[in-house]
């Protein structure tokens, strides 16, 4: 095989790189360690500012409303309201091994959380109530937030 490849559709000459550039991110957690520790044991946590009471998800280490750095974690309720959702049919490279999945936004305890909705797309409607859980996907060690319709 020569170094020039030819595009199947157009027949145009393409230089194929014989080497692949792989990336795997290593994200330092710092103050977010607690969030993932809780997720590992099945709890979803958000934070609340001890000074002004503002609540945040995802968790953060200072309050942009009042500037305080005194925030505490709290466990979110297991019931929320599905605000909107979409079924991902064409997946990004890193999720291409999975079947179609539904991503939803759920309001709970005054914050919004993103997770996977376990339901058929046609059975869903905005504003319905859902149960919030932490589950591991089949063949996947990684815990994730899932929503199950209650009505």
């Amino acid at each position: 095989m020569g170094i020039i490849g030819y595009d199947e559709k157009s027949g145009k000459p393409i230089l194929m790189d014989p080497r692949e550039f792989k990336v795997r991110y290593r994200s330092s957690l710092g103050s977010l360690e607690k969030y993932y520790k809780e997720l590992e044991v099945g709890r979803v946590v958000a934070v609340k500012c001890k000074e002004c009471g503002s609540k945040y998800f995802p968790p953060r280490s200072y309050c942009p409303s009042c500037g305080s750095q005194d925030l505490e974690f709290f466990v979110l309720s297991s019931r929320g309201r599905l605000i909107t959702y979409t079924e991902i049919n064409v997946k990004p490279q890193t999720h291409s091994k999975y079947g179609d999945y539904i991503v939803g936004v759920v309001e709970v305890d005054g914050v919004k959380v993103v997770g996977h909705v376990k339901a058929k797309f046609k059975d869903l409607r905005p504003d319905q109530n859902v149960e919030i859980k932490v589950e591991r996907r089949e063949g996947d060690e990684y815990p994730r937030i899932v929503f199950k319709p209650l009505d």
Binding site: Y25, T86, I88, V103, V105, R144
Partner: peptide, 20 residues
Amino acid sequence: WEVRDYGITFPGYYATFMTR
């Protein structure tokens, strides 16, 4: 928070608006 673990795509982001 959204792409890495939940695999939302760009059409997915806008689809949440279309649904609502």
